[in-house]
Computed example of a mutant assay.
Amino acid sequence: MRMADRIREKLEQALAPTLVEVVDDSARHAGHAGHREAGETHFNIKVVSAAFAGQGRVARHRQVNALLAQEFADGLHALQLTLLAPGER
């Protein structure tokens, strides 16, 4: 299974989001640390979920990073995260 699909599946199962966008941004990081020719090392992710209500930005990021611990162990290098509760911009 592709890394992007694994990420999407884990986020959907754990957070019951109303929106999940997972974009492989690895090509933009060619030559940077953690980049692999095969890609799937850098992702831009947007999630809107009621699970984030009442949480600060750091807590949201920690939650997503913990959910994706296995993906980091498997070669995921970096995430750009936009994590919102419904109604937030």
Rank of each mutant, 00 (worst) to 15 (best):
M1L: 15
R2W: 15
A4Q: 15
A4N: 14
D5L: 14
D5Y: 08
I7C: 08
R8W: 15
R8V: 15
E9M: 12
E9W: 11
E9G: 13
E9K: 10
K10E: 15
K10W: 10
K10D: 12
K10H: 13
L11G: 01
Q13A: 14
Q13S: 14
Q13D: 15
A14G: 07
L15I: 02
L15K: 00
L15Q: 01
L15W: 00
L15F: 02
A16S: 14
A16D: 15
A16K: 10
P17N: 05
P17T: 03
P17E: 06
P17M: 04
T18C: 13
L19F: 12
L19I: 11
L19G: 07
L19D: 06
E21D: 14
E21P: 10
V22D: 06
V22G: 04
V23M: 12
D25G: 05
S26K: 04
A27G: 05
R28H: 13
R28T: 08
H29E: 04
A30C: 09
G31I: 06
H32D: 15
H32Q: 14
A33C: 08
A33S: 13
A33V: 09
A33Y: 10
A33I: 07
H35M: 05
H35L: 02
H35N: 00
H35Y: 14
H35P: 01
R36E: 07
R36I: 02
E37V: 00
E37N: 05
E37P: 06
A38G: 05
A38Q: 07
A38C: 00
E40M: 04
E40I: 08
E40Y: 05
H42T: 02
F43Y: 14
F43P: 04
F43A: 03
F43T: 01
F43L: 06
N44C: 12
N44L: 12
I45C: 05
I45M: 03
K46D: 13
K46Q: 13
K46S: 14
V47R: 04
V48L: 00
S49M: 02
F52H: 01
F52D: 05
A53L: 11
A53G: 10
A53V: 11
A53W: 09
G54C: 02
G54E: 05
Q55I: 00
G56R: 08
R57A: 14
R57W: 06
R57G: 08
R57F: 07
A59N: 01
R60E: 01
R62Y: 00
Q63E: 09
Q63K: 10
V64H: 04
N65Q: 12
N65C: 13
A66Y: 11
L67D: 11
L67Y: 09
L68K: 08
L68S: 05
L68H: 06
E71A: 10
E71Y: 08
E71T: 13
A73S: 12
A73F: 06
A73P: 01
A73N: 10
D74Y: 07
G75W: 02
G75E: 04
L76M: 10
L76F: 06
H77S: 00
H77D: 01
A78E: 05
A78N: 06
A78S: 13
L79I: 03
L79Q: 04
Q80I: 11
Q80D: 13
T82Y: 07
L83C: 01
L83A: 04
L83P: 01
L83R: 00
L84G: 00
L84R: 02
L84A: 03
A85N: 07
A85Y: 03
A85G: 08
A85H: 07
A85S: 10
G87K: 09
G87P: 09
E88T: 07
R89M: 10
R89H: 12
